[in-house]
Amino acid sequence: MLAASDEDSDVRDGKNVLITGGTSGIGLAGAKRIAAENGRVILTGTHPQRLAQAREAVPEAEVLANDAGDPDAADALASAVADRGGLDGLWLDAGYAAVAEVDEIDAAFFDRMMNANVRGPVLQLARLSGHLNDGASVVVTSSTSTYEGSGMASVYAATKGALVAMARGWASALAARGIRVNVLVPGAIDTRFRDFMREDVRESFERDVIGRVPLARVGTPEEAAAVALFLLSDDATYVTASQYAVDGGLTKR
């Protein structure tokens, strides 16, 4: 899917794709497929064990330690990709989730999540936009939490809703260069993303979500990654400023 045309010698061996937060879950599933299809992939993450596991799982990839919540991390990432010949794809997938009752939310809780989930992608795109090749594709990972109205996930939902709004603006701003910006909206996907929850809370949450999913199951990382890879590919050259839900019909979007 991501292999370039033989007529374009600059990317004959595949496209350059950077996936932030790609050392686990959906991003890692996408990286494996990009590598299998002869693309060149760079992954970022923060957890040492997951960084090591990603290097083992995708030995073809370059795996970098980079924390989206650090305001200096975007500059470091731009420096790291400066000599890569430009990016054909940028998947802003880094982020994390935490839940709290409304009266438990404090400034530290709010700032940490906003910094990682909103400021991080904003600065990443700002610093990396100059490294995007004309005609490149940007995919931003949001979440169905934006639309679910969970009382415990209000701040997380707000961060992911902000990404939807910003992606529309980015699509307009970058359109003159033929750069497309689209949003992946995963629902209940079988990843480690909810490991922060106590086991009993997580099981109850997942039962509740699955009970509202028309397909009556969670999705796989590969199923969600396949949609992101479509958006990153030349099969989606007339798709921009769009949202693609991968949620088994949960939000019916």
Score class of each variant (00 low, 15 high):
residue 6 D to Y: 14
residue 7 E to R: 14
residue 11 V to A: 14
residue 11 V to Y: 13
residue 12 R to N: 07
residue 13 D to K: 15
residue 15 K to E: 13
residue 15 K to G: 05
residue 16 N to C: 04
residue 22 G to E: 03
residue 24 S to D: 12
residue 24 S to W: 00
residue 24 S to P: 01
residue 26 I to E: 05
residue 29 A to F: 01
residue 29 A to K: 00
residue 34 I to V: 10
residue 43 L to H: 04
residue 46 T to S: 11
residue 47 H to L: 11
residue 48 P to H: 11
residue 51 L to F: 09
residue 53 Q to N: 14
residue 62 E to G: 04
residue 66 N to F: 02
residue 67 D to L: 07
residue 72 D to T: 10
residue 81 V to A: 02
residue 82 A to H: 07
residue 83 D to A: 12
residue 84 R to Q: 08
residue 87 L to V: 03
residue 101 E to H: 13
residue 102 V to E: 14
residue 104 E to Y: 13
residue 116 A to N: 05
residue 119 R to A: 05
residue 126 A to F: 07
residue 126 A to N: 10
residue 127 R to I: 09
residue 127 R to W: 11
residue 128 L to S: 04
residue 131 H to N: 12
residue 133 N to P: 03
residue 133 N to E: 11
residue 137 S to A: 15
residue 138 V to A: 05
residue 140 V to D: 03
residue 143 S to C: 05
residue 146 T to Q: 04
residue 151 G to D: 07
residue 151 G to I: 03
residue 153 A to V: 02
residue 153 A to I: 01
residue 155 V to M: 11
residue 156 Y to F: 14
residue 157 A to P: 06
residue 159 T to K: 13
residue 161 G to S: 14
residue 164 V to E: 15
residue 165 A to Q: 15
residue 166 M to S: 06
residue 167 A to S: 15
residue 168 R to H: 11
residue 168 R to S: 12
residue 170 W to E: 02
residue 173 A to C: 03
residue 174 L to R: 01
residue 175 A to K: 03
residue 176 A to W: 02
residue 176 A to V: 00
residue 179 I to T: 06
residue 183 V to G: 01
residue 185 V to M: 12
residue 187 G to I: 02
residue 188 A to L: 14
residue 192 R to D: 15
residue 198 R to H: 10
residue 214 P to T: 09
residue 217 R to M: 07
residue 221 P to I: 06
residue 223 E to N: 06
residue 227 V to Q: 04
residue 231 L to K: 09
residue 240 T to Y: 02
residue 250 L to A: 12
residue 251 T to D: 11
residue 252 K to Q: 15
